[in-house]
């Protein structure tokens, strides 16, 4: 019997599917069965993605893979990592930092990468820039204190204070 899909190769896969009470028989070659099966599997995956995700998360605690400490918990919302793996949902925005060590390998599997390259909110964008600048200034300050350049250190300290105030103001807006 020839494959009913490509009508080229011999049918080696035979199965019956019942859809809404109607029985259809399929006789396919290995290749076409895989193609068909692939789409069915993908459709089922899209349909049940959350289920799949929690499966993926639970897989991590299989033997051989270092398991999370049972106490790994987000201090902000109280959600534990194992609750997250069951639910497939985080409890609050802080969970991302609380679980970040375990998150990156997961993100690499389900996303294109683990770093955002898209749109940045206008307001948060200013703050992100400000916080990066602040970090740099604090490093400079450490360096100038270590080098005993106190005049420069005093200038840096003033700039840091100023920037901190600006950032506080933005956040409180």
């Amino acid at each position: 019997m020839l494959c009913q899909e490509c009508k080229e190769r011999p049918a080696t896969v035979h199965f019956t599917k019942i859809v809404a009470g109607e029985k259809s028989e399929f006789h396919l070659c290995e290749q076409c069965a895989q193609e068909k099966g692939d789409f069915f599997a993908k459709a089922a995956q899209a349909f049940n993605f959350n289920h799949l995700l929690s499966g993926l998360l639970n897989m991590e605690s299989s033997p051989g893979v270092p398991t999370a400490q049972p106490t790994l918990r987000c201090p902000s919302c109280g959600m534990s990592y194992s609750q997250f793996t069951q639910l497939g949902r985080f409890g609050c925005p802080s969970c991302y930092d609380s679980f970040s060590a375990r998150l990156d390998p997961l993100l690499r599997r389900i996303q294109s990468s683990e770093t955002h390259t898209g749109k940045v909110p206008l307001r948060a964008g200013e703050q992100v820039k400000g916080r990066k600048e602040l970090q740099r200034l604090r490093q400079d300050l450490q360096r100038s204190i270590a080098a005993e350049q106190f005049e420069e250190a005093a200038q840096l300290r003033d700039r840091i204070r100023q920037l901190e105030q600006t950032l506080d103001g933005q956040e409180g807006r």
């Binding site: 993605f49 959350n50 995700l53 497939g88 949902r89 985080f90 925005p93 991302y96 930092d97 998150l103 997961l106 993100l107 389900i110 996303q111 683990e114 770093t115 955002h116 898209g118 749109k119 940045v120 909110p121 206008l122 307001r123 948060a124 992100v128 916080r131």
Partner: peptide, 28 residues
């Protein structure tokens, strides 16, 4: 989205982007 952002404090992460309840939506 931009207009709403002027009034709502969106949760945004420097590395992960817009934070969402499910990690399948995070980033953009």
């Amino acid at each position: 989205d931009d207009a709403l952002e002027e009034h709502l404090p969106y949760s945004f992460h420097e590395r992960y982007g817009y934070l969402t309840a499910c990690p399948t939506n995070v980033g953009t």
